[in-house]
Write a protein that binds this DNA or RNA. Structure first.
Length: 562
RNA sequence: UGGGGCGUCGUCAAGUGGCUAAGACACAGGAUUUUGAUUCCUGCAUUCGGAGGUUCGAGUCCUCCCGCCCCAGCCA
């Protein structure tokens, strides 16, 4: 391999958070430490938007020689489940990141968080509220009008302490009381109008069981968890920008180590829905087969679809990190995918919609083993042999009885090259009584054998094919966008769905080497696209393939233009 | 109409007062090709949401205006 003389370097990420860290390091902050965290709530599966955050947090730690924790933000027992923490761990690992022994849970800190709440009460900075949720809302005021103080705001510290302890002991029903920070009911920032710190929830927690009757709110748990873990840069999405002053207030009120929060714009993708609400809706209303349906933008869905972790990481690097809301073109993700698959996927031949071809001048009963390169982009991938015989299948769309001018494929009287094999010419079109083409009679040119001494003759088109006698029948699932709208969030779910997002073909004919494809194995079906043997349904000997993405199709574009 | 953010090519996104406003994707041409794939060339913002102003010089500084996003959960 020759060393590359290119001076082009992959553009190093220079986004604003990267710069902040560089500046912090230069200024000697945090003793030169960089410590981030990825803090998912275990109430759903991770999706491509989370991947952006994962790559950012783990990537920054990696680049600066720091560490990144995996921390589950499990402060709401009524929404969170073990199933989700398992899937999250699997997905982060699959993406290629390692949190070593730093797997943490906000629930690990419930004890400390409670003590800190007591400390806050003692400092006169928190009080127990008796008002109902509705009343609290009324007292909060509106965006343009200040709120009013709660009648319980000036409760004596001693009383607050007792009440809070009783809340902890489970003496009150859900919703009866709540602990609030005493900040400023007239603040322009709604989050500072005496935010709720603790609520009563008589619910089983997936980790702490029935130990607790009160659970901290996000704002009380997050910053302190960051503090406990020694996080230096707490990176979150834009909607938490308004929470930053509360994040800072809590840490300052306690006088503990104070990490800094930075916000970036979350990822949006064309033709894709990423909101948790809609993702859950897709699953519960069974518009998809589950969280890992290959059409889902979840990590598990993308994995099953055949995406690679490297392609997703590359994508996350290319989209950049900024504060402007943006919607990335899905074609960029597809580009990253194809770029990698082109280099790595083994080429094979598979006929999705078979049309039989009989080579009338080929000896009956003869079988030739032809040599085929596994991947022209990777000489190390080697070669394999493919059986060739008198009866073959070609793709239905590769034949037209009355073709337009620029159709380079098979038509009556026309010649094409069969990949790795011979040039054939169409002599006769056989039809059934409905007038449908059922079979083609062709002749082959024995002088045109691939790799042979007289193979030089050029024809315009090359087709993939499979020998009838040796073909393996398989199911193939063709996927398209789940949504037909470029901005599916603007429309409600049944209407926004693409009715043709899944097409299952059951009588595909594959070259024999595919018979024992292992679940999870990826291929390029020559001229058709990239496919993966489904990890759930495919079995060695009875393979089922998912189309990851089609190849770029210039011919389709020409046809569209007419 | 309170507060917090954001507006640079179709889409992302560099740019932090001084050469003709990076790069990628997309798109459009062309070359090579036993995948109409890949690869390779070429083109693609006289202009930075708008209007004024400061300056020898502004996407970058100032003023005003316009537009978009987020916040009134005992969700995160």
């Amino acid at each position: 391999m020759e060393p590359s003389l290119s001076t082009e370097q992959p553009t190093a990420p220079t986004h604003f958070i990267h710069k902040i860290i560089e500046e912090d390091l230069a200024a000697g902050k945090n003793d030169g430490r960089v410590h981030t965290r990825f803090p998912p709530e275990p109430n759903g599966y991770l999706h491509i938007g989370h991947a952006k955050s994962i790559c950012l947090n783990f990537g920054l730690a990696q680049e600066f020689g720091g560490q990144c924790n995996l921390r589950f933000d499990d402060t709401n027992p009524v929404k969170e489940e073990e199933e989700f923490v398992d899937s999250i761990k699997e997905d982060v690992k699959w993406l290629g990141f390692d949190w070593a022994d730093r797997e943490f849970y906000a629930s690990d800190y419930f004890g400390q968080l409670y003590e800190w709440a007591v400390q806050l009460i003692k400092a006169g900075k928190a009080y127990v509220e008796d008002l109902s949720a509705d009343e609290i809302r009324e007292y909060r005021g509106t965006l343009s009008e200040p709120g009013k103080n709660s009648p319980h705001r000036d409760r004596p510290i001693k009383e607050n302490l007792n009440l809070f302890e009783d809340m902890k002991k489970g003496k009150f029903p859900d919703g009866a009381k709540v602990l609030r920070a005493k900040i400023d009911m007239a603040s322009h920032n709604m989050n500072m109008r005496d935010p709720v710190l603790y609520r009563i929830l008589h619910a089983e927690h997936h980790r702490t069981g029935s130990d607790w009757r009160i659970y901290p709110m996000y704002d009380w748990a997050h910053g302190q968890s960051d503090s406990i873990e020694g996080i230096t840069h707490s990176i979150c999405t834009l909607e938490f920008e308004d929470h930053r002053s509360l994040y800072d207030w809590c840490l300052d009120a306690l006088g503990v180590y104070h990490p800094r929060q930075y916000e970036f714009a979350r990822l949006n993708l064309t033709y894709t829905v990423l909101s948790k609400r809609k993702l859950i809706q897709l699953v519960t209303e069974k518009h998809v087969s589950g969280w890992d349906d290959p059409r889902m933008p979840t990590i598990s869905g993308l994995r099953r679809r055949g995406f690679t972790a490297a392609a997703i990481r590359d994508f996350c690097e290319r989209i950049g990190v900024a504060k402007a809301n943006s919607t990335v073109d899905l074609s960029l993700l597809e580009f990253c995918l194809r770029e990698e698959l082109n280099k790595t996927a083994r080429r094979v031949m598979a006929v999705l919609r078979p049309l039989k071809v009989v080579l009338t001048n080929y000896p009956e009963g003869q079988v030739e083993d032809l040599e085929a390169q596994n991947n022209p982009e990777d000489p190390d991938a080697g070669h394999r042999t493919i059986p060739f015989s008198r009866e073959l299948y070609i793709e239905q769309e590769d034949f037209m009885e009355d073709p337009p001018k620029k159709f380079f494929r098979l038509a009556p009287g026309k010649e094409v090259r069969l990949k790795h094999a011979y040039i054939i010419q169409c002599q006769e079109v056989i039809k059934n009584n409905k007038g449908e083409v059922t079979e083609l009679h062709c002749t082959y040119d024995p002088e045109s054998k691939s790799g042979g001494p007289t193979a030089g003759r050029k024809v315009k088109g090359t087709l993939h094919w499979v020998s009838v006698l040796h073909a393996v029948t398989a199911e193939v699932r063709l996927y398209d966008h789940l949504f037909s709208e470029i901005e599916p969030d603007k429309i409600e779910i049944p209407e926004s769905l693409n009715p043709n997002s899944l097409e299952t073909i059951t009588d595909c004919q594959l070259e024999p080497s595919l018979k024992d494809a292992k679940p999870g194995e990826r291929f390029q079906f020559l001229r058709m696209g990239y496919f993966i043997a489904d990890q759930k349904d495919s079995k060695s000997g009875a393979p089922i393939f998912n189309r990851t993405t089609p190849l770029r199709d210039t011919w389709a574009k020409i046809q569209k233009k007419g």
